[in-house]
Amino acid sequence: MYLVILFWIFVALLMIFLSTLFIVGIFLLIKGIQRKMLGLSCLGIGFILIPIGFVGNFILNIESGYLFQEIFVNIGFILAVIFTNKTFHKNRKSPVKLILIVVIVLAIIQQIFYGMIAIERTPFLYYLQAIFDLPYVFLVFDWLAWSSYSAFKIIKNLDIEPWIKVRYRLISILSFVMSFHSIPEFFQPYNTPWGAPSNLISLVVFGTTAVLTVIFSVGLLLAWLMPNWLKDKLNKDYEPKEDIVFSEEDLMTLIRKQLSERRNNGNN
């Protein structure tokens, strides 16, 4: 009885994860289109696709396991890597192309495994799929975590609004946490449905994954749709510098004056 209740709690957490991710995805897609930011639009679409895959798999009640769902998840992951590359690594000497290619290859491998498992579910195939899933998930989420953390390290002592610094930190911490979500797969009994209340190990695996994904999605909701009261609270010791509005002529006169003063001081 308790295990069944626990199962439904985890299902509720999974629903929170999917709906939150969908909301964040819609928000990012709208902002990406408004601001003409391709990377942000990619992440938005990716976050929308993942819940569609999960819900679609459930509604269509597809017999072939998670094949349908994984198509959407894999596209979502690839789009997340495109976001990371476009947001953090333009014109930089980073292995952006290599990482994208490796992620695409690993996504294809996952898809092939899910196809094979749909035909015949054997322990060999299941654990081989889990072994390949580990570097795939690590690469997608730790690449984002590392990129965001590196950018944060550069800006942390600069005159930047504190709420923006918090957003960087949240993205790096949450992505790092999410990169571990494939580890529980190794403990999942290969022949038991995901989270079956009749099997304690499966239920624990399901619960761990559900908790990790909820932390990730709710944290992302907070990072991207941060309420104004929270921004104000984080900015409470920060004094924004309002720019004086100059006409072009006045500004150029001011700059010439300042430059001339500097030159005179230099000569003296």
Binding site: L28, K31, R35, M37, G39, L40, T87, F88, K90, N91, R92, S147, S148, A151, I154, I155, I160, E161, I164, R167, Y168, I171, W224
Partner: peptide, 13 residues
């Protein structure tokens, strides 16, 4: 600009 490019997105939304 290259080092801080992410501010365009992370700080602009």
């Amino acid at each position: 600009l290259t080092k801080n490019q992410s501010l365009i997105t992370i700080g602009g939304v």
